[in-house]
Write a protein that binds this DNA or RNA. Sequence first.
DNA 1: AATTCTAGTAAGGGCTCTTGCCTGGAAAGC
DNA 2: GCTTTCCAGGCAAGAGCCCTTACTAGAATT
Lengths: 376, 376
Amino acid sequence: MAKPALDLLRSRTDEHVLHALMRHRRLTRAELAAEVGISKPTAGESVRRLTERGLLADTGERTPGGRGRGRVGSYYSLAPSVGTALAVSIAPEGVVAEVVDAYGDTVRRAERPVRPDQVASTLRDVVTEAAGPTEAARPAEVAGPVGPAGRGGRPRLAVVSAADPVDRGTGRLVHLPDSPFLVGDLDPMAIVGAYVGGPVVVDNDVNWAARAERENAGDEFAYLFLGRGLGCAIVGAGEVRRGSAGLAGEIAHLLTVGPDRRAVPFVEVFAQLGLRQEGSTAIDVERLLAADESTRQVIGRAVAGVVAAAVTLADPGLIVLGGAWGPALLENIRAAVADLPRPAPVRPATAFAQPALSGARADAVERLRATVVAGA
Amino acid sequence: MAKPALDLLRSRTDEHVLHALMRHRRLTRAELAAEVGISKPTAGESVRRLTERGLLADTGERTPGGRGRGRVGSYYSLAPSVGTALAVSIAPEGVVAEVVDAYGDTVRRAERPVRPDQVASTLRDVVTEAAGPTEAARPAEVAGPVGPAGRGGRPRLAVVSAADPVDRGTGRLVHLPDSPFLVGDLDPMAIVGAYVGGPVVVDNDVNWAARAERENAGDEFAYLFLGRGLGCAIVGAGEVRRGSAGLAGEIAHLLTVGPDRRAVPFVEVFAQLGLRQEGSTAIDVERLLAADESTRQVIGRAVAGVVAAAVTLADPGLIVLGGAWGPALLENIRAAVADLPRPAPVRPATAFAQPALSGARADAVERLRATVVAGA
DNA sequence: AATTCTAGTAAGGGCTCTTGCCTGGAAAGC
DNA sequence: GCTTTCCAGGCAAGAGCCCTTACTAGAATT
């Protein structure tokens, strides 16, 4: 019924209003007009439309006396029904689930250690604690307004970080040759999907950690994750490059320089140095950090070999080191990289505390906002 | 004076009209309305505005009798003044310059062989032949409508392909360690810039060849250029990934498997096999193509080593082989790639004749169209 | 109590786009 | 040769969105 061309203008105005409220939490109509750059009547119309659609709500708050001496204004903000998103991190160290809102605030959080054979059930427990029971498990008891924090029922979407390679098509964790397989076979998309009303995005922890680094490292860099597992993420034009199946950056098998200067797969270097954990393909971080200088030099050269390949194929302007032991060996890696035919600046990561979760959270907020703005 | 919000609608309509005319060459107002999905009055208004701005012109043609029996319509098309773009290819085999219009047609073309020590002057000659003299060299004689084909004077922009690594910042050709340096030190941006009225984009031939392959190879693939020089381009999400300085894919120095199975830089493999040209870092393609089966297997394994690195870091879904000898060794390379821990499908390139020029031409047309639509 | 300042509303106008109708002229059919 | 059919193009009317201007309401200041 409405004209498609004019719809565009109107929806553009509404989008700007929503974005302004995501940034500023609460605004009066007059403030909205100034912030978005539209006239007061237009702002008022947009607020009316969005309130009707249930996306905005009068907070009941009024402009405080202190500010001006004129008429009081009504503060509007996003309606609680715009909902929340779920960010989940699955790592050998533990499982974390966070419920975030469109402002980027964490409204609920649950965390638990994990035993290798109980990843799936721990994941279910943690998500239940943060996001409430699945749809199937709760129809009877909950009928009132909604969950604990009054911030809507089920999250509208989920973003999951897993500490193993993820097949982008299926969302399942896959076992690649010679890679440590830390979490094990798991289908996070199916498990988490039961708790949310919309899509579930799954990717490996390294890619999310790189995304978290984006704010401080610019638009073109490579993120080397050096911890129990080994990974790499290439960020180009501000986006993490995942490749056709999402397996870009699984560098465990990449050829590099070994202890005796011969070419070996990256992960094999740690086997030859005796730094792999008993009965596992994972690296023993504690012993690695305690290693002597010559061992550190060997590792630095091996990492530099990986850097050389990344520089050759992707030409990142910067190498960022993350993971449990990457930043600790910064100087050894820097020295070895400086000897390469095409050196590159090397820097430690700036996001230390749960970088993968930070990246997943940021992506969850971004997707939630896009969902809200898109209309549903 | 006009309202910014309504400007948006109007310009959107005008852009659609321009794009429709780029696809269909000539259309009546009524055809435009149907094609763009707007009403006849709106189409008529847009044509009036665009004609006023000099972007559209009545061709003088009228609807042919055969088509319908109603009133004759007036055909409109892009005005000649929207101008042309220049696509240039600089390779050891020769220099080519083409002038293309917004329809993607080549309106003039010049080609010449090149001697290593005369690249700059040959380049100048070829561009002069295709695009006319530089601004400085012609003020007096030309005052009439314009150049030879009546298709506007100087090209509005240029896209240059050079068969050597290109620094994206400066546009200059750079010499990387162990890479063949075929064209030599040159500043195409400065030379070609004198002939065009706008920006000059310079990139290496491999990236342009990969762009030409995009139509047939999808959005995620790696293009291996195996000819006198060695190069690689990673295409992700439909875009050629150039990296921070534009040096992504300069694989000559990448470690791979050598003749004796030891790790050596890619280009070194050909030195060890005695397949480099006398006194040069370039590969002797003729002798390579005449090599025996065991040599071909060695080369196949070496290429597979490069593929392994590309698969590891970029996860392309497909490997495309181009260059003078790449497709010829398809079976050897396929066999070696099949033995990798993470194999990938390998295919020969589909663009054979001057693939780099094809890609540069396509980019020149796209940029010219964007320039026209953007308004100037 | 008067003044001052601000949030919000109302009215009017400009612009774009749409629908519907009219016109002129060429081809098709008698 | 005349009439009918058909269609490009133009005009008129109307709707929607946004903007500007002007006004009202209400609270703090003076």
